[in-house]
Design a protein around this nucleic acid. Structure first.
Lengths: 328, 328
DNA sequence: TTTTGTATTGTAAGCGCTTACAGAATCATT
DNA sequence: AATGATTCTGTAAGCGCTTACAATACAAAA
């Protein structure tokens, strides 16, 4: 069932049918009625592929995310999907797992499908974005990077200011009178390093009255618990623990509570991301919220601008916010 | 940059270029090398749209889910996406929100895009699947329903046996010696009703020694807490509480613990779905796991079968499993 | 009535690819 | 050298649509 069938049935030409369907050009009322009757009677569905052939667009955008099961990414994918859905675009979802090979495979697939835009959620592209093979693919469509930078003309990005996020936590606990701060470094990503640096700088800004030190552990609740035990065991003085991730912070809280430490009177604890872990932990974690929904909406706006033909190269910096909980 | 450019550059016909790209038909080694050289030098990307025009397939499947932010759906979407990705298909993700209007809009969009298959996650279609408008759309592609039934020839489905899931919980706590069971009904979905019926029937199967009653509350942690307080307040006897959802069960646990009730010695509690709520609750909830990943894989298999031309109409019933926690 | 302008409709090209078919080239066989 | 079989390559049609342009119809103005 195609446009020819409809045209024949209605006794008009395919151009007229097309004009009726797209409500474009001039069609007399009588003809329009005739065609519309056939249209609704037949259950005809126009082929988006054939349309795409002409317009070179399938009205589709691709979202490449590391893993949609991570709530943070799910929220962003959801926000992006809804925003585009309301504008008549569908979203192709790709779970890259963060690996280069899969990422390239997905990029190739979606560029072949001539998506109208690509949003990259996650930071793989800081590493692989400059490889010629990858860059060639990325040049095929407007690209927006959530949390990362990419120096090609058709790419924009939203950067998360992790340094200021960590500084937010430091300022918060020092304002509460805490003086001996520890940063729990759990990951080795660029983001985690930025947080650590932000922590150190913020402590230095406070002068001698505040001391900031770093302890490393594994990224997990267990890792956090272990870090807490380690601090307690080594008899180091501490009255605030700034963690790189909520998971770790949950572990720290558990470790401290089980040792009889009072939170936040004795020790304040902060997490990062204001994730579900922060909300389910009792007492509720104070955490740094980088508002995945807002970031996603910024990405959508940047992409739309490029899809409208405006140049890319824009870098927006998103400042995280402090989400106060019961642990500070 | 299209296949004509490549052909001209390589001094061959477009048919030969096509044969090289698709590794189909016969091409002499010399010609192949010549074309491949041009191909890699030019960074040419074949147009999937044009291919789709010929093959009437974009190698894409659609996943309609209520809300990807719900971890259960995220897991299923992830599983489906990965499975199809490995077979060279991309996935279009739609968040319907469970409403009819949005659902129809998405169905129309993806059928216009001539997706090779549709997987419907969530149960809206039990209600709207029979409306002529919806059915006409659903007939355009092979369809698989996760947790729901649809009587059209090109649809298969995986049903979750909610009754047996609830019975699993009943059998488990009665085996532990519990005799006064309550079912906490929190939702009004078909699924929730099936669980309640399964609960009642399972209790009846135990004869006089077991008594099963039902209490209603709101679907939320707070609702669960409220139900627990209510049971305590009204001085009813109970030694096991079977909940329709993990969220409610978490609330029940909190309510009981704060009243000094020992779990599971005094009262056993079970949730449903074995979600992240079950795992983050302390003590860890015993819950009913309907294995979203396995269900998703069954959906994929059913869809693939239909995409290979085999008839649909298959209904697989998935039996949930008990996930033992510390609350029983 | 003829002319001019406008509203309506149709014809045909072309989007980039696959593929059936035909034709050319090569090779083995007689 | 001629024939047939085989391998290789090119031509052209067609996938279902949009749209530029041509053609027609019709109404108003001259």
């Amino acid at each position: 069932m195609n446009i020819y069938d409809i045209a024949k049935e209605a006794g008009v030409s395919i151009a007229t049918v097309s004009r009726v369907i797209n409500n474009k050009g001039t069609v007399s009322d009588a003809t329009r009625a005739k065609v519309e009757a056939v249209l609704s009677r037949s259950g005809y569905t126009p082929s988006a592929i054939a349309r795409g052939m002409v317009s070179k667009s399938m009205r589709t955008v691709a979202v490449l995310t590391v893993d949609i099961r991570v709530p943070h990414y799910a929220q962003q994918a959801y926000t992006i999907e809804q925003a585009f859905s309301h504008r008549g675009y569908e979203v192709i979802l790709c779970n890259t797992g963060g690996g280069k090979e899969a990422t390239v495979r997905y990029l190739r697939a979606v560029t072949e499908k001539q998506v109208d835009g690509i949003i990259l959620v996650g930071s793989v592209f800081n590493r692989i974005g400059r490889e010629p093979e990858v860059e060639a693919l990325l040049r095929q469509a407007p690209v927006v990077l959530a949390n990362g930078r990419l120096d090609i003309p058709n790419a924009s990005s939203v950067l998360l200011d992790d340094e200021s996020g960590a500084a937010l936590a430091v300022d918060h606990v020092t304002a509460l009178g805490k003086r001996n701060l520890w940063y729990v470094k759990d990951l080795n990503t660029a983001s985690a390093l930025a947080k650590r640096d932000g922590f150190i700088k913020a402590c230095e800004r406070c002068g001698d009255r505040v001391r900031g030190r770093v302890i490393e552990t594994e990224f997990s609740i267990e890792g956090g618990r272990h870090a807490a035990k380690e601090l307690l065991r080594s008899c180091r003085s501490f009255d605030a623990i700034i963690c790189g991730e909520d998971e770790t912070a949950v572990g720290v809280v558990k470790g401290l509570l089980s040792a009889g430490v009072r939170i936040p009177q004795d020790v304040a604890v902060t997490g990062y991301n204001n994730s579900i872990f922060a909300s389910m932990c009792e007492p509720r974690l104070t955490s740094i919220d980088n508002k995945p929904e807002q970031v996603a909406l910024m990405c959508v706006q940047l992409l739309e601008r490029m899809m409208d033909g405006e140049p890319g190269g824009i870098v927006e910096v998103f400042k995280p916010e402090l989400a106060q909980g019961w642990t500070t």
